[in-house]
Amino acid sequence: MLQTISVLLENKTGALMRATGLLTARGYNIESLTVAKTLDPTLSRMTIVVDVEPRLRAQVIKQMNKLINVLQASDLSESPSVTRELLLLRVRAAAEEGNNGPRTAILKEAEIFGARVVDSSVEGFALEVTGDTEKLDEFIDVMRSYGDIEVTRSGAVAVSLDPKKLRLSPPVPRGAEPTTVNVES
């Protein structure tokens, strides 16, 4: 089963590589990866989907949390969360005189999937749709039946519905011991 990992990390050179490097070093292939700035522009939120052996999942999360640039890494596959993906799809459906058949059908199908037309030309349409992975897979199957398609998927973005308290280390005076993270609470 795929594991969805959400990582809040510093928006710094190399931070992304450190997080993904932990997976590649263990020989895991990343299925999808999205990353973008958060409300705080010094931080990024990353969603990684990866197939990790079940017994090693907790270890991977612990190792990520050890990275200096990582503020919080959590496993979303084991807690309530919502995952969505964006898909951009071009379908070839040339307008023919007196026969608008496939084009109308495509627009109908798009409406069923809640897709939006982002470009329309005599050759066909570009459509935008969001949803979970299964829905997007289905959408692709349906569109394929109408003609040649071209697809770009964003990869999963996920949000936990069970927000964990974020523990950050406060600044320490130089030369002092680190403030210990409170484990009692």
Partner: peptide, 11 residues
Amino acid sequence: SIHLPGYKVHA
């Protein structure tokens, strides 16, 4: 001072 918000030491 040193500020590394993501550096967690559990001592």
